[in-house]
Amino acid sequence: MNKELLKKSQSLIALFLLCLVISVLSDKFLTTNNLWNVLRQISVNICISVGMTLIVLMAGIDLSVGSVLAFTSAVCAGLLKNGIAIQSLDLFIGFTVLGSVLSALIIGLMMGIFNGWVITKFSLPPFVATLAMLTIARGATMLYTQGIPISNLGSSFEFIGSGWLLGIPVPVWISTIMVLIVVFITKKTAFGRYIYAIGGNEKAAFLSGININNIKLAVYGIAGMMAAIGGVLVTSRLNSAQPNAGTSYELDSIAAVVIGGTSLSGGVGTVTGTVIGAVIIGVLNNGLVLLNVSPFWQQVVKGLVILLAVIIDKKSKK
């Protein structure tokens, strides 16, 4: 019983130990400003990782989330700043903050659904299909922005990424709401149970009457939309859409999922575990910066932590 409890809380214990070590080594870590900053920074990764969790639970993977984030970020900023001009109709369609954000979410959703469609229709490995989308979306971002950042998006848009609501940063509210929604989906709905069933044994799930293709389409769609939410947060925080935004975010999100205890072979894992994983990565990043560790070493350390998490996952299955 105690062993089971220990196994379930291993990532929480790791987080606690990490916080303890960093707070001993740096007196700036446990300051209110720094902790809010960490939470604000990890909000983006939490949104992406939560979507990624659903995919990994189905034994899939999505390598395109970083590029989808960049593309939706560019579209959101582009629509807000430049709108759409239709010469032949002598018509200009302008977008409000709400309009540009909704457009970004819809585009993220469509890109995710496209990933799911390619995977199910052509029976492609998710790794390959989403790798293709990674390149397509990055190229599309460069085409759309011409490699130039889209800046000065206005203070009302900036509020989404930099504002405070009831004493808590807005991005923290948004990521918390997203987490609660996905936790509800996985724990309380048939759709959530189907995801676990597909990840556990796809053939058995199919034979029991689950429409696997539709579930996959929906899950990849949700992940795309989550990446778009991350895109909106990043754009708003910087008040600018950067063409190279989201580079390697897919790795951070996969790391958060794995560290949080979700099995890469599917069927096992929780969204709350992923949130802890994302917090571990955020705290680790912050701690390494506070301790003046070189960025090159930061990457090495992060890689080692992911490796350790996967080894522990593998060992715990035996």
């Binding site: 010469q87 002598d90 018509l91 302008g94 709400l98 309009g99 909704l102």
Partner: peptide, 15 residues
């Protein structure tokens, strides 16, 4: 309501 609050239209030439 969402659409009404999301987009607005102008004459391109005027703009």
């Amino acid at each position: 309501v969402l659409l009404y609050n999301s987009v607005y239209f102008e004459k391109l030439s005027k703009r």
